[in-house]
């Protein structure tokens, strides 16, 4: 069925079964491949995007449920060639190794900071618990989010 999505500020028309996970529509039809497949069961967080500002697992979100809502992916965080403060903080802290989890980590952290501009380490760890970094870069990720928290703006 035809569905209209609002992705990163632009209206995008796609054709997909209503129950198809948003993840595949983003990746296959809109070429927004910064959002990753990691497990398909909502356990790893690699597919995290924002829907109306809230982090969701796009592998478990039917595309029809996101229709008409504001969807933000990693590609939508950078503005006018300037990295989002969370992206910049990840880069500065080198809070990644293979980088596969990184876009979703950044999206999840941006949502967290949007809600709570100065979270404690414990709060960061609790809110990011659903995002896996198999390279084990967690301490740097926490440090990057704390760094970004002082300069974060709304995604």
């Amino acid at each position: 069925m035809p569905i209209t999505l609002l992705v990163n500020g632009a209206e995008r028309r796609v054709e997909a079964p209503s129950d198809q996970p948003l993840l595949y529509v983003l990746r296959e039809q809109l070429d927004l491949t910064g959002t990753k497949y990691g497990c398909g069961e909502g356990q790893c967080g690699a597919c995290t995007v924002l829907v109306d500002g809230r982090p969701v697992r796009s592998c478990r979100t039917p595309v029809s449920a996101a229709a008409g809502k504001k969807i933000t992916t990693i590609e939508g965080l950078e503005q006018d060639g300037k990295l989002h403060p969370v992206q910049q903080a990840f880069l500065d802290a080198e809070a990644f190794q293979c980088g596969y989890c990184t876009p979703a980590m950044i999206v999840a952290a941006a949502a967290l900071l949007n809600e709570n501009p100065s979270p404690s380490e414990q709060e960061i760890m609790r809110r990011m618990e659903g995002n896996l970094c198999r390279c084990g870069t967690y301490p740097r990720i926490v440090a990057a989010v704390r760094q970004a928290s002082s300069v974060a703006r709304k995604p």
Partner: peptide, 21 residues
């Protein structure tokens, strides 16, 4: 020295095999 192409990873631009077409 920081990771040379680090920006491609934080911006979601790096293409892994699974992202290629």
């Amino acid at each position: 020295i920081p990771k040379l192409d680090g920006r491609a990873f934080v911006s979601g631009q790096h293409k892994y095999t699974s992202d290629m077409t």
